[in-house]
Amino acid sequence: MNQKPSNAFIAASWATLLIGMAAYIIGLWNAEMLLNEKGYYFTILMYGLFSAISLQKSVRDQLEGVPVTNIYYGLSWFSTILAVVLLAAGLWNANLLLSEKGFYAMSFILSLFAAIAVQKNTRDSLSKPAKNNVEIDEGF
């Protein structure tokens, strides 16, 4: 069964992605850390978003019978896990309050989840309608 997502779910997914990214980036902007540290955390966010979208696409491709090489599938999983581990390692070693560390972790995970939802919605919206939906011609 192939249902297109509702407009409300699409809007909520986009809003969640933008809120998560904005919170993370505003937190970085206001943080009292060196510019290279800010660059590290920003790069981890961008890498994490890209890897999460890539993972969602490769998983979905496999489910739909689209050929995906094992190496790409594995790299997608590895990249997503690596992004989370790199953020965790950075936060573990950062001289930040525990509440700040939690803030970055939560906004990062929120952004990754929302990116996956946006990718799924985009793919569902562009997919072909189910083959068993037959239009009835009433002769008008």
Rank of each mutant, 00 (worst) to 15 (best):
G39S: 07
L98W: 12
M106Y: 09
I136H: 06
L82H: 05
K120F: 10
A89F: 03
N2V: 01
F42C: 12
A23H: 09
A94V: 13
G39P: 08
S54W: 00
N36Y: 15
N2G: 00
T43N: 10
K101Q: 08
N7T: 14
G65A: 11
N132K: 14
L49H: 00
A11K: 04
K128M: 13
S111P: 06
L55C: 04
A89I: 06
A23S: 04
L126Q: 13
F42T: 08
S99K: 09
S76A: 14
F50I: 07
D61I: 00
G90N: 04
S58F: 13
L86H: 06
S79K: 14
F9L: 11
S58G: 10
Q62V: 15
Y104F: 15
L87T: 03
L98H: 03
Y24F: 14
S54F: 01
V59H: 08
Y41G: 02
I136M: 08
N36L: 03
V84P: 00
L17Y: 12
A52T: 08
N132Y: 15
A11D: 07
L18A: 09
F140N: 10
M33R: 15
N2F: 12
L82I: 09
A94D: 15
A23V: 04
A83W: 00
R123I: 13
V66Y: 12
M46N: 04
L86S: 14
G139E: 03
I44V: 15
A88H: 11
E100S: 14
F113V: 10
Q3R: 06
Q3V: 04
A22F: 05
F108L: 05
E37A: 08
L126M: 13
G102M: 06
V84T: 07
V134R: 15
G39N: 12
F42P: 00
S107F: 07
F42Y: 14
G139M: 03
I26S: 09
Q62N: 11
W14D: 13
Q3A: 12
T122F: 09
L97F: 12
A8T: 02
T80F: 14
K38R: 13
A88N: 04
